[in-house]
């Protein structure tokens, strides 16, 4: 790849804490290498801010290889920036050119309150999992792993759904801040496997109920979630969730 350097203007959301009013600040960064990752560009900026005696920008990040789901920047109006099927940490600066202005905001959703600058609180996702995103099996002596064959196609579909990293880009992209792609990925992952079948009905009902309680919005099928998902979770999972949910509602004994 051809290597080049660039100068950029950054407009970054700064907010001291959950209760204070935030605003955009403008920064100039120089001599940014096209081989850097987007977060390494932020590292450079933060080092400069520290050097100038200013407060660095707080942002979530950890593995920097696109799998932990911690990074969460809304870049030029799109979660995780311009590349398809990508996380912020894997976005590289060759996506930009000299002189560009880049606007960076935190995820915006009522259910994801800002903690500081670009850092938000996504604990609502953990509580949704607590509502039923598991198989009720204790550590012990289950049957041999090969005792129950699983159709390869279904196993592959379950894996594709289980690849969700819980980053919340789907919520950030949705005009309603719906978490349905996240919820449907977990419901699908477990419903597609024989091991998850016994609890499939209560799981769908309870996870959706918790999602509503957390203040996520409704799904209106615009598909923005799927378009930005770094792991390409398909919205067919939402269709599966809808059928799981409807069936569970119909069959529920305690109406």
């Amino acid at each position: 790849m051809e290597h080049y350097t660039m100068n950029l203007t950054l407009k970054v959301w700064r907010q001291k804490n959950a209760t204070s009013q935030g605003s955009f600040e403008t920064y100039q960064v120089r001599n940014i290498s096209s081989e850097m990752s987007f977060l390494e560009m932020f590292d450079v900026l933060n080092e400069e801010l520290i050097h100038e005696g200013k407060e660095p920008i707080a942002f979530d990040h950890d593995c920097r290889e696109g799998i932990c789901g911690m990074c969460s920047m809304y870049i030029n109006g799109r979660p995780h920036g311009p590349w398809e099927a990508n996380t912020t940490c894997q976005l590289h600066m060759r996506a930009f050119k000299d002189g560009d202005t880049i606007v960076v905001e935190p995820w915006r959703a009522n259910a994801f309150p800002v903690i500081k600058d670009l850092t938000v609180d996504r604990s609502a996702f953990d509580r949704i999992i607590q509502a039923g995103g598991y198989i009720s099996v204790n550590t012990g002596s289950p049957v041999d792993a090969n005792a129950i064959p699983v159709e390869k196609e279904k196993a592959d579909m379950a894996f594709a759904a289980a690849a969700c990293i819980g980053c919340g880009a789907c919520v950030a992209a949705c005009k309603n801040s719906s978490a349905l792609l996240f919820v449907s990925a977990k419901v699908s992952h477990l419903a597609l496997l024989p091991q998850g079948a016994p609890e499939r009905r209560t799981r769908a009902l309870n996870m959706v109920a918790q999602m509503d309680k957390e203040g996520f919005g409704s799904c209106t099928n615009t598909g923005a979630c799927e378009a930005v998902c770094p792991k390409e979770i398909s919205i067919t999972n939402i269709a599966r969730l809808n059928s799981e949910f409807t069936l569970a509602g119909l069959l529920s004994s305690n109406k």
């Binding site: 598991y134 198989i135 041999d144 792993a145 390869k152 196993a155 894996f159 992952h189 091991q195 998850g196």
Partner: peptide, 17 residues
């Protein structure tokens, strides 16, 4: 065995194993 019981989607052969 434990992981499969929890729903960990390990890679499988066409025969389901």
């Amino acid at each position: 065995d434990q992981c499969v019981a929890q729903g960990v989607p390990f890679a499988r052969e066409y025969g389901g194993l």
